[in-house]
Design a protein around this nucleic acid. Sequence first.
DNA 1: CTGAAAGCGCTTACAG
DNA 2: CTGAAAGCGCTTACAG
Lengths: 345, 345
Amino acid sequence: MPVTIKDVAREAKVSVATVSRALNGLDSVTVKTRDRVMKVAAEMHFIPSSAARSLISRRTQTIGVLLPDLYGEFFSELIRGIDQAARAHGLHLLISSTRGDAAEAAAVMKSLHGRVDGLLVMSPHADAEFLSRNLPRNLPAVLMSSRATGGVLPSFSVDNYGGAVSMMRHLVGRGHSRIAMINGPEHNFDAQERLRGYRDAMAQLVPGTEELVLQGDFSEESGWRTGNQILALAQRPTAVFAANDMMAIGCLFALNEAGVQVPGEIALAGFDDIPIARFVSPPLTTVRVRIAELGSMALERLAMGIEHPERMSASPQTLRCELVVRSSCGRPQEGLVLVGSTKVR
Amino acid sequence: MPVTIKDVAREAKVSVATVSRALNGLDSVTVKTRDRVMKVAAEMHFIPSSAARSLISRRTQTIGVLLPDLYGEFFSELIRGIDQAARAHGLHLLISSTRGDAAEAAAVMKSLHGRVDGLLVMSPHADAEFLSRNLPRNLPAVLMSSRATGGVLPSFSVDNYGGAVSMMRHLVGRGHSRIAMINGPEHNFDAQERLRGYRDAMAQLVPGTEELVLQGDFSEESGWRTGNQILALAQRPTAVFAANDMMAIGCLFALNEAGVQVPGEIALAGFDDIPIARFVSPPLTTVRVRIAELGSMALERLAMGIEHPERMSASPQTLRCELVVRSSCGRPQEGLVLVGSTKVR
DNA sequence: CTGAAAGCGCTTACAG
DNA sequence: CTGAAAGCGCTTACAG
């Protein structure tokens, strides 16, 4: 039997309406009354029922976060960024991972209905059609890393294409042409864009050289596996561009195991710049994505959209990435961007 | 104006009570009525209001998770384990990090009141006194990695002490006696226990040898910093035992930068066995903590305590850890435990 | 098996 | 400035 607003009203000798007003800081309460109410409420350890509050106010002060997975530093960084921004707005975070199929994602979205004021969605299923069918009406949502949904919903993504092209320029600039790509999951938007960058760059920068794409799934294990596939090749590529750092690190491990020198025999590049990337040997040349910032910006935009739905534009926004040259593709040369090669966060 | 139970009742030509019963699967409804109600509800895309439901049932189907931090693989692994178990129980997860002081932690606990059916707490402030003051009454809670609170609350922790002693035995067994420890955050229970293991082992296994404890904070950066401190020492230790893998990896990076061979010149060990540990060079000898399992077990216990409060015992439970010998302390010898040295998850 | 009604704990027009 | 009352959308004794 927790303390309710009625108990406070009785003790403070006012109506529940007045208690409500005092607690919510409405100025239609005399300072004297308000102080008394506050004092009594504190003494009684009164905590308003959030269920009752949301029932009537239709606000939960909670944001739902739909993630495809929870594995690895990428997601802890993303959640960290989201959490930080949420805290600043006094919002709670309901986190769900939907590793499974579209049906599971749909079920989760349904179960979140009424529990959240808005949704942050990162899901391979998050295309326009799926969302329009499964997103509860009038629930503000912001997509992260998903194919632009034709202006239906606001979205945030990383400039995957531009980042991949930069990296390819870097590799080609260092004399590589036989460059292999370790691709990410087939239906992942980030992966698709990075692959597109690789392909366009291959075609334009080293025309006539064949593409070499190996299928990974963003996990270290798949990087290790494809690394071994590369080792078994009759003619090895001189550089490997992994679609994310985890796969690059898995691949690096395979190369290390086989005694193949990086970057001496094979250059290796990743994507994301997860914190660990600078701690492997050799430190990984990669494309920096400010992951935490991606999360906090998406949350900021969602929070804005909840407060001011009219100001919520559906335009897709893109976050720049930057090339980070460390030493897994050879020591940085003069004139190249050099970021974080020795600094430790 | 979302669809409510009233709308469904009207369309299905029954009372709201009957709709409620049908939807909740009570058997006091004829199959015929139930089918009709279900059909109408589905057609209307009715989703029950969770706020109304919790208000009356006093259940939220949500678990609050209080974490000290969200940085690094440890937490993504922990959340992953918790999420997996939560999903199996149909529970939602409200995640909060309280990087700040005790006051912030208290505020967060307060704000969670009424939003959750139970709490999973990992916090440096989570001692008996703090919790008894701030934990909402009758809210089931399970502590993770906290000093046993004298049987007040159930707790789950890792056998930090035992794990640290095993590692020390391993190091001493390989001929080391000048062993330095990079300690974790001062108020962190896991860190305190690991340090205690180090100290007891030093006293018992290599009596007469001085302890050498450097202060870190579990971050890679602090591992790097203390690594440089070690390098600057007049007489360097022959082995370094970091209280977690992230610091070990930071330290490894400092040693690599300085061209100091690991394990040739200095042996290096960590604790946790985060996924990345096997991917650094040399692969890290460490103590495996099944982090995801720690999370899922804590959740299982909490879920049980919510269903059957009477069966909830306050006894502390400890999770075994195991020595994982890779090569950062020298190649494994015969007769030593050898786990995961080449396998990749 | 089904319905009318009370009630969960709040907020907010509406009066005064 | 304050209070009485309606109502948010459910669940659940209580009747029948």
